Simulated assay, not measured.
Amino acid sequence: MRAIRFHETGGPEVLRYDEVDRPEPGPGQVRVKVTATGLNYIETYHRSGLYQMPLPCTPGSEFAGTVDALGAGVNGVALGDRVATASGIGGYAEYALVPADKLVHVPAAVELDLAAAVMLQGMTAHYLVYSTYPLKAGETCLIHAAAGGVGLLLVQMARRIGARVIATVGSEAKAELARAAGADAVILYREEPFAPRVRELTAGRGVDVVYDSVGKDTWEGSLDSLRPRGMLVSFGNASGPVPPISPLVLSAKGSLFLTRPTLWHYLATPEELAWRAGDLFTWMANGDLHVRVDRRFSLADAADAHRALEGRETAGKVLIVP
């Protein structure tokens, strides 16, 4: 089969289109014939070496497809089942493996490519607004990168809850996407500092929570946008890692809360996985949640997909299709 691998860390050019053996499922594993794989920022961290991986490495944990083979001891899954996962192994390939307890069945009303597009980013948005900071109707949140894959889903979920959404984006075209998703106010961060504008929009109070996937470039402004005892949820490093911070800064700026969550701690049990994925699929089937696929790249063009993502050229989800 064909797969993308990197044998050394570096830029997108290290991604190779290799011929490899089709993987065999071990005990408790399922092999999936991949329909589509979701591209996520964490794979650029793996490829660059920011997050170390054994080499050679086939990236990709989020994909959807049909069950092709079962390992020993697998129950509740049959050949041909439509499934999706955010915890797979080697998704940049024609076939990939996944632990059976980390996959979910995809209902017939949801297209497999859209299931691949929503698993990781959709469940990230879900845990952020329902668990990390349980957003309530009437509260105000600030969402950075609001026209990105997670951002557009976050905006929709926050509005569904009944919260007020202030969004930051990098261009007027992306502002239109954020508004269409339900953002109440949109700030073009390249044209004006966002923290003073947030204060103006909240009559000086600040927001209840900031959902920040950008990292280094927005860090200080995010702190300055919060109300006293507000929470900064830092869940990504798109512009680089956040620098070290003294806890006294949180005290001085209003007894703020800071958390740096990751999805896997919010998928701790099969029940939690089923809850989050089930909500997503139900909302998608009902038309209450719209998943925007920005573009699709062939497997052979995975390096171009990484370049587009890192160049902030995308608005919505990017898929890699075998």
Rank of each mutant, 00 (worst) to 15 (best):
V14I: 08
V14F: 06
R16T: 15
R22I: 14
P23Q: 06
V30E: 08
V30Y: 05
T35W: 13
A36R: 11
T37S: 12
N40L: 00
E43G: 07
H46G: 11
G49T: 02
L55H: 09
G65F: 04
D68C: 03
D68E: 14
A72N: 13
G76N: 05
D81Y: 04
V83Y: 05
G90H: 07
Y92A: 08
A100R: 12
A100V: 11
D101W: 09
K102E: 14
K102T: 13
L103I: 11
V104K: 05
P107W: 01
L112K: 05
L128A: 01
E139R: 04
I143L: 12
G149A: 12
Q156G: 01
M157Y: 01
R164N: 12
V165F: 06
V169L: 00
A180F: 00
A181C: 08
G182T: 02
V186R: 00
V186Q: 00
L188S: 00
A195V: 01
A195Y: 02
P196G: 10
A203C: 13
R205G: 02
V214E: 00
S225M: 07
L226T: 03
P228I: 04
M231N: 11
A238G: 09
P247A: 08
V249T: 15
L250E: 08
A252E: 14
G254Y: 08
S255R: 13
F257G: 15
T259S: 11
H265S: 14
L267T: 11
A268I: 06
T269N: 08
A277K: 09
L280N: 04
W283C: 02
N286P: 00
D288A: 13
R292Y: 13
D294N: 13
R295C: 06
S298H: 12
D301N: 13
D301E: 15
A302F: 09
A303V: 04
E310V: 08
R312Y: 10
T314K: 11
K317C: 05
I320Q: 01
